[in-house]
Simulated scan of single mutants.
Amino acid sequence: MNKDGLELWNWRRIIIGEVPVEFMLETLFRTIIVYLFLIFILRMLGKRMNAQLTLTEMAVMITLGAIVSPAMQLPDRGILPAIVILSCILFLQRGLGQLSFK
């Protein structure tokens, strides 16, 4: 253990982090709300804003960066919340793609 109280091989802290399960659910809801709001804003900005990318692709790229950064930068955050939310964004993106295809 170093002076910050971090243990290098504390797998529970690395995977789950030091946050309650409720916070993981809150993070999921926050991500969905921000994702939908971002789609709305990008649609309002128009096609010139995003060149070759579709609105949802651009929103996913921005959201993915915001999702993974805390898991990599903050020691009290585990990677599991980021993995769960990344999976949800993947399914949301695929679902929107299927809906737009039909």
Rank of each mutant, 00 (worst) to 15 (best):
M24C: 13
G95D: 04
M1A: 03
L45T: 10
Q98K: 10
I41L: 14
L28A: 10
A82T: 11
L80M: 13
Q73L: 15
Q98V: 10
F91R: 02
R94D: 00
Q52S: 08
L53E: 00
S69D: 01
P70R: 10
D4R: 12
M58S: 05
T31Q: 11
T54G: 12
L36P: 00
L8F: 05
K47L: 02
I33V: 15
I89H: 05
L38K: 06
G17Q: 11
A51F: 09
L55K: 01
I79R: 00
D4W: 05
N50K: 05
L92M: 14
E26L: 15
L28E: 03
R77N: 00
C88N: 12
R12P: 02
F37A: 13
L99Q: 11
V68L: 14
M1V: 02
G78Y: 01
K47Q: 02
G46N: 07
K3H: 10
L38M: 15
M44A: 09
T56W: 08
L92Y: 10
T63Q: 03
L45I: 11
L42A: 13
A82K: 14
L28P: 01
G95I: 04
Q93R: 04
K47R: 07
F23W: 09
L55M: 04
V34H: 10
W11L: 14
L86Y: 03
Q93T: 02
G46M: 06
I67T: 13
F40S: 06
D4G: 02
M24E: 13
L38W: 08
E26Y: 15
L96I: 08
S100R: 13
V60H: 10
L92N: 07
M1Q: 01
K47N: 02
L80V: 03
W9S: 01
I41A: 13
L6T: 00
K3R: 13
L86W: 02
W9K: 05
Q73E: 09
L55H: 03
I15W: 03
L8Q: 01
V84Y: 10
I89T: 07
T31H: 06
I39P: 05
L74C: 11
L90D: 08
R43N: 14
I85N: 07
E7Q: 13
F40E: 04
D76A: 07
L25V: 13
R30C: 12
V60F: 14
L99E: 10
V19N: 06
L64F: 15
L64T: 15
S87H: 03
Q73Y: 13
I67A: 10
M44K: 14
I67E: 11
A82Q: 12
N50G: 00
F23Q: 09
G65D: 01
L45D: 02
I41G: 07
I15L: 09
N10F: 05
G17H: 12
M1P: 09
Y35R: 06
G95Q: 06
